[in-house]
Nucleic acid binder design. Structure first.
Lengths: 133, 133
DNA sequence: AATCATATGTTGTATATGCAACATTTATTT
DNA sequence: AAATAAATGTTGCATATACAACATATGATT
């Protein structure tokens, strides 16, 4: 056999994502949002006001997934969307405040990740990102 | 700011997993199973007859997730589970046959991953696995 | 301008996933 | 042995995710 079955790359990435998610979830509990919602809020924090489609493009998420996630964030009044057919999305003041409040906690989780990764740092992650697109 | 928001490690791993999954899904379509079902079938192929709990342990999956995934595989008669309260799970002949039939296709996807990763190979992935537990 | 093609948003459906709550079984303590 | 604790399986609930089908809007062709 060419490869060991448990060396399956997509399974392994999925597993790593589950592990990392578990860590981050603990941090997010008190803020009432999920890991993915955080990701979208962070993306909006960087992108400003953008077409909804751009979010999926940046995060490699299916249109429908973005649509639903944005709806959840809208329900929490963390983002605002225009009423156009191709709406533009942006953080509300509440969303901005949440991001700012969250950042120090998120940084602590990041610190612990960096600590775990030790001398490797995020280099292995970056290498994967460079190649796996 | 200590880190860039888009450098969030858990988000990035999640994104990488989505990308890798997308590739594998194409391969699995014709076999009528999903990426996660494949992962469990592969694990059983290696582990033989095991307690259901061992699957979650090996794959870092919550008990309930394993319970449901196994149920789906059972419905397809790809795995068999004993009726005990803590059931033992194993591949059926149909499951074994599917795994064997799938392997060459899976290997092609793995080849393409290895090709993508180029000179890095799976080293970055292994480094992450060593540290992120 | 009207038509056709393309792009994008939404909804239905199915699986993936985790957590909490509950059920049951096994292990431990007294 | 009885009672308590710990482990494990299942179910309800919520979100995450993708795909297909549909709706609508935008762009390109004629």
């Amino acid at each position: 056999m060419k490869y060991e079955l448990h060396h399956c790359i997509s399974s392994r990435l999925r597993k790593l994502a589950r592990i990392a998610d578990g860590h981050m979830r603990n941090c997010l509990k008190e803020f009432g949002i999920t890991e993915n919602q955080m990701t979208i809020l962070f993306a909006l924090s960087k992108l400003g006001k953008v077409e909804q489609g751009k979010i999926g493009e940046a995060l490699v998420l299916e249109r429908s997934t973005v649509s639903r996630n944005v709806k959840l964030l809208e329900k929490q009044k963390l983002v605002r969307k225009t009423t156009a057919y191709r709406p533009e999305i942006e953080l509300t003041n509440k969303g901005i405040a949440l991001v700012n409040e969250l950042i120090p906690h998120w940084e602590k989780v990041m610190d612990s990740y960096i600590d775990l990764l030790g001398d490797y740092g995020t280099a292995p992650l970056e290498k994967l990102e460079q190649r796996l697109k």
